[in-house]
């Protein structure tokens, strides 16, 4: 049992890596929020931070989110 607990402890410490894309440098808060909402609805957000304006999107969602961001930016041009 002790061995099992130790194994479980080591296992618990291990890394959980996920291939993804990190979106950063949103100059407008509204672009960040809109992108985060879009990606959340698609269920592809792995991690995000409001203050730093960072969104981590799974590889599956990257293409759609990338297109969405491009549209947002072009709208402001």
């Amino acid at each position: 049992v002790v061995d099992q607990i130790r194994l479980w402890e080591i296992e618990k410490n291990r890394l959980r890596p996920t291939a993804s894309w990190l979106y950063s440098q949103f100059s407008r808060q509204q672009d960040f929020e809109s992108t985060l909402q879009y990606a959340s609805e698609m269920g592809v957000v792995l991690w995000s931070d409001q203050k730093k304006r960072l969104i981590c999107v799974s590889s599956d969602g990257h293409q759609a989110v990338g297109n969405y961001v491009r549209k947002l930016i072009n709208r402001h041009k």
Partner: peptide, 9 residues
């Protein structure tokens, strides 16, 4: 906006 490929751990 910048997008970088990598792995979130």
């Amino acid at each position: 906006v910048k997008a970088v490929k990598g792995v979130v751990v």
